[in-house]
């Protein structure tokens, strides 16, 4: 079903592994299509309550495969036709999506990590806004996310100087949620994803909707959007379970609906 990625659902977590390790998991047209397809599959699958994006081998993703870049390439059309659909599928996913950054995330690979809700960094991981080194601008939504995470000035520095950002510095900059020792990598990522998968999934989706709206709407519009989101959350079984469990002084068991 997939050639360039591995996709597996285990204990309510969809594991999406970029699987071109000898090419540092760099993007080809096929891999972009397969990631898009897998994200949509995860969105449609009721069993899936958390998505983890990670890379096989020593890299997370080295960005666009430069071997396929030639003078004929229309970079704008590649973004519209290939990267755009993948990024929109990730943004529309109303479930938590975690980038488990196992190694270098460069160029569009960095952008891919930025498009996720959480970034867990292995001590071997690093970010690199590499575009400037080949005379290009950060793409795949990169600066949309980066300016919000680190501010305009730091985003300019990271994009124009294009220096490597080691894992510990990435955490200090607010680019990542956790720094994980190599020995604990698999265990901690699995535990983090497992924890998300047991949470009220519908509410997480609605939180994501509000987070996205926060940048798009006026205050009055946002308050209306928030009221609708809370109404939708208030109708979920997980909300009732949360309240009941609180009253009964027990741990709630959420089903994601």
């Amino acid at each position: 079903m997939y050639d360039t990625i591995q996709y597996e659902v285990k204990s309510n977590v969809a594991w999406l592994r970029l699987n071109r390790p000898d090419k540092l998991n760099s993007f080809t047209d096929q891999m972009l299509k397969e990631v898009t397809k897998a994200v949509k599959a995860a969105a449609a699958d009721e069993q899936v309550r958390c998505v983890v994006l990670t890379g096989e081998g020593r890299a997370f993703c080295a960005g666009q495969d430069l071997e396929s870049v030639d003078e004929q390439m229309d970079h704008g059309e590649v973004l519209r036709g290939q990267y755009g659909p993948m990024l929109k599928a990730i943004r529309q996913l109303e479930k938590p999506i975690v980038a488990a950054v196992n190694g270098v995330a460069a160029g569009a690979g960095f952008s891919l990590a930025l498009a996720c809700d959480f970034r867990l960094l292995s001590e071997h991981a690093s970010f690199l806004n590499a575009f400037i080194h080949v005379g290009l601008i950060p793409d795949s939504g990169n600066l949309y996310a980066l300016t919000k995470l680190v501010g305009q000035a730091k985003a300019a520095e990271l994009s124009i100087l294009g220096e490597k950002i080691p894992a510990d510095e990435a955490v200090q900059l607010g680019l990542a949620n956790r720094l994980i020792a190599a020995d604990d990598w698999e265990t901690e990522v699995t535990a983090f994803a497992g924890r998300l998968a047991m949470m009220p999934t519908k509410a997480i989706g609605l939180i994501k909707r509000s987070l996205n709206a926060a940048y798009e709407l006026s205050y009055d519009e946002f308050l209306e959007q928030e009221a609708q989101g809370q109404r939708a959350a208030g109708l979920t079984a997980d909300h009732r379970e949360g309240v009941t469990a609180f009253i009964e002084k027990r741990k709630p068991v959420f089903i994601g609906k």
């Binding site: 909707r209 959007q225 609708q228 989101g229 109404r231 939708a232 109708l235």
Partner: peptide, 10 residues
């Protein structure tokens, strides 16, 4: 535009 969950309600 309203939340899909609330289309009929709204």
């Amino acid at each position: 535009i309203v939340a899909p969950e609330l289309l009929l309600e709204e």
